[in-house]
């Protein structure tokens, strides 16, 4: 092979490349890319100064702080507890394990509005959890704590489902080797198992965080929606739309879209890293 010519695709006898790729790109452009680019074009109309003014008002800053902060805390809770759940599901046998394993995906399948009213009723001062909690002075519904509870719920499956397959494929001989070399169980976990599952757990953390920042339905019922205190960024967009402030809504939306793109790139990079680590650990 002396002549290397650049090709758009490798040769194959399988038919349908033009049709399926053409349709994929057409449909993707129509449904996703066209509407998203409309947002950026609309923003360029409002002008840089106005844009900057809108996205840095104290109310907007407070809403980012809440959306980002609560998502980070929720994702961190899921990072720790989700890793534990994945561990328990992969390593131990106990009654009800299959049920527990199936129910983990509930936040993916349950509509967010349904989750929202259920969590709010649960944590309201008359609710099953809210009543005992309020008697010791902890108020969850209509506070920032409620936002964290909702975002923990929404992000729950991500870490479990990213860590679980990695733990399943983990080579037990590595642990046996560590143990036979005199490592305690905790040392084996910290030095052998944890480094292998960390990239997957971090990917799950990023997915949960990214989902939490944009989440709307499950949060607005439990949050109380007080400007400056319990108003999340997506709600601020809705509020501005209801006031027919399309420019303001678009400006906040662009900030959130840019964050989504950054998170998407970060998650892709993490998944590649995780894949390489997995190949090494499983090999």
């Amino acid at each position: 092979m002396t002549r290397v010519s650049w090709q758009f695709r490798k040769r194959s006898i399988i038919p349908g490349f033009g049709l399926t790729l053409g349709f994929t790109i057409f449909y993707l452009s129509l449904i996703v890319l066209l509407p998203l680019s409309a947002t950026f074009v609309q923003t360029s109309k409002i002008g840089w100064q106005h844009f900057w003014h809108v996205v840095t008002t104290p109310r907007a800053l407070a809403s980012y702080e809440l959306s980002f902060g609560a998502s980070l805390i929720g994702a961190f809770l899921n990072f720790v507890l989700g890793t534990m759940v994945a561990w328990v599901l992969v390593r131990y046998q106990f009654t009800g394990k299959r049920l527990i394993d199936s129910i983990v995906d509930l936040p993916f399948a349950l509509p967010t509005a349904v989750a929202g009213i259920a969590l709010t009723t649960l944590y309201a001062t008359t609710g099953w959890f809210g009543h005992p909690l309020s008697s010791i002075g902890v108020h969850v519904a209509f506070t920032r704590l409620g936002v964290i509870v909702a975002l923990t719920f929404i992000g729950l499956p991500f870490v479990v489902r990213t860590v679980q397959p990695v733990l399943e494929d983990l080579d037990k001989e590595l642990e046996e080797a560590a143990a036979s070399l005199g490592a305690s169980r905790w040392q084996t976990f910290a030095r052998v198992i944890y480094p292998a599952i960390f990239p997957a757990a971090l990917t799950g953390f990023a997915l949960a965080f990214s989902r939490g920042v944009g989440e709307y339905g499950s949060v607005i019922f439990i949050a109380g929606n007080m400007p400056m205190r319990t108003e999340i960024a997506p709600l601020l967009i809705v509020t501005k739309l209801e006031e027919y402030d399309y420019g303001g809504a678009t400006a906040i939306a662009v900030v959130m879209l840019l964050l989504s793109f950054v998170m998407l790139l970060a998650i892709n990079a993490l998944q590649r890293w995780s894949g390489r680590r997995e190949a090494l650990a499983g090999g």
């Binding site: 758009f8 695709r9 490798k10 194959s12 399988i14 490349f17 790729l21 994929t24 790109i25 993707l28 996703v32 890319l33 509407p35 998203l36 409309a38 947002t39 609309q42 990214s210 989902r211 920042v213 944009g214 989440e215 709307y216 339905g217 960024a233 997506p234 709600l235 967009i237 809705v238 739309l241 399309y246 809504a249 678009t250 939306a253 959130m256 879209l257 989504s260 793109f261 998170m263 998407l264 790139l265 998650i267 892709n268």
Partner: peptide, 30 residues
Amino acid sequence: FEFFGKSFLISLIDLPFSVSPVVAGLTYVL
């Protein structure tokens, strides 16, 4: 098939997962 820009296309397909539903609605309003 193997073709140029494949992983970029996969990322674009995933895009609606990382866009807030509220922003998705807004883009259609715009």
